[in-house]
Design a protein around this nucleic acid. Structure first.
Lengths: 236, 236
DNA sequence: CGGATTGTTGAGGATACTCAAGTTAGGTGG
DNA sequence: CCACCTAACTTGAGTATCCTCAACAATCCG
């Protein structure tokens, strides 16, 4: 809700790379910044897509609910990520719900600006396309995992992906630096929280991870990688 | 390998919509057309990505092989589709293999033209982005299906998707108009050819489909849709 | 006609789900 | 600050789905 947003907030983001100050100002002049408390949603599935966003701080979880009421996590949104770009998906509504799992701040643009911005700023268009390319690749990776791997390996890969995207080095390992529940992990891997609980318990006994209520610390990422790649037998 | 490619071949494609004749000619002047016999590959997984393509006629299957040797089908390429755009995925190699399942013709551009073309033709950039958006949505749909649905429903959805993309109305139903094996369907749904065989046999007894060696005719798409959406019990 | 590819079907078993009961941790209000 | 309440998690038992293994049948192609 600021009058003007400072260039320095975004100038380092890959999305805005190779843009002049003037271009940045042009784009930022159309944006407002918004704060989202933990547990609040930025937008909800099915809602008219009237804005798109860039996350500045915090962490969001994007979910979809099936007609039967099962939920799956499409992805986590990390600082610097573009999200809510329904227009690029050729949609008028948001296909999922995005909810803050940590205190978050995002820039918001009216969706009506989308075409205009792309037209006026070709380098941003290319960056946005690369963003989508990266996401497409991640989706294919997950498809491959879901199609071919057993649960334990899928959980290993999922947990390693989380660590790569939102891990923070810490004494004794890499911590996922936002609250993750077993249910969350289940919804990312296509399994149940029961199975995730059993797997993490086994891993904990083996010294691979350290769990806790919505906490996760990877104590031995290397061994997890071996497990995920099937070079080492599972622990169940 | 033609000297020049005629505008009429591509002017109707969504990818090239809203482009002037001059723009089209500029783009086409950099392309060559190529023919691919059934069973030949356009490019292979891991190979240096030196070209990107648009399919004019025919049908391609894009697969990935896991380190363990299991294969999955990432998608089918239909006429008009852009494919092999490794650059947009920020890659220097092709992440999968694309192989002709029907006699095919594609236009090919040197990958070095990619940035240049995007720069010179903003409307094509936007169209390409929409292509990627559509693909991202399809990937998310498949993720949701793999995560939450049992095999029979996944097969129903997969088969209906095939019909929508490459179905041809025919006396008695909708025919998938290229050869599809049970193995193919298995690789699209994350199951085995055995399970697919059992499911299709059951469906055939119920008058839902008509199978055959690499053939598939949907006799009752509506009932298949109900089955896929869980509004009707499965037949296994 | 023969070989190869594709598909069928059965039996048995493993993975992971469901159902169920309980425990622990954390937050909240008195 | 403690008691309570709820959300998150644990663990066990039973079972369903679907995979694996195996043998065979049908179809296509040269």
């Amino acid at each position: 809700m600021n009058a003007t947003i400072d260039r320095s907030l975004v100038s380092a983001l890959p999305l805005f790379s190779r843009m002049s100050d003037a271009e940045l100002d042009d784009i930022l002049s159309m944006a407002v910044s918004r704060r989202y408390a933990v547990g609040t949603s930025v937008f909800e599935q099915g809602q008219a897509a009237d804005q798109f966003f860039v996350l500045l701080y915090g962490r969001l979880r994007v979910t979809q609910v099936t007609p039967e009421g099962q939920q799956i996590i499409i992805r986590m949104v990390n600082p610097g990520d573009l999200f809510g770009i329904a227009k690029a998906l050729q949609r008028n509504d948001y296909p999922g719900t995005s909810m803050a799992v940590a205190e978050s701040v995002a820039l918001a643009w009216p969706m009506t600006c989308w075409d205009e911005i792309l037209e006026r700023h070709p380098s941003l268009t290319i960056n946005a396309m690369q963003t989508m390319g990266g996401r497409l690749q991640e989706a294919h990776t997950r498809l491959r995992e879901l199609s071919t791997e057993e649960v334990e390996r899928r959980v290993a890969h999922t947990v390693l992906r989380l660590a790569n995207q939102s891990g923070k080095k810490e004494a004794g390992g890499v911590r996922i630096d936002f609250p993750v529940s077993k249910q969350d992990i289940a919804e990312m891997t296509g399994t149940t929280l029961h199975t995730v609980s059993r797997i993490l318990t086994a891993w904990e006994s083996a010294g691979l991870v350290e769990g806790g209520r919505r906490k996760l610390l990877l104590k031995d990422p290397h061994r997890l990688l071996l497990l995920g790649d099937g070079h080492v037998p599972g622990l169940l």
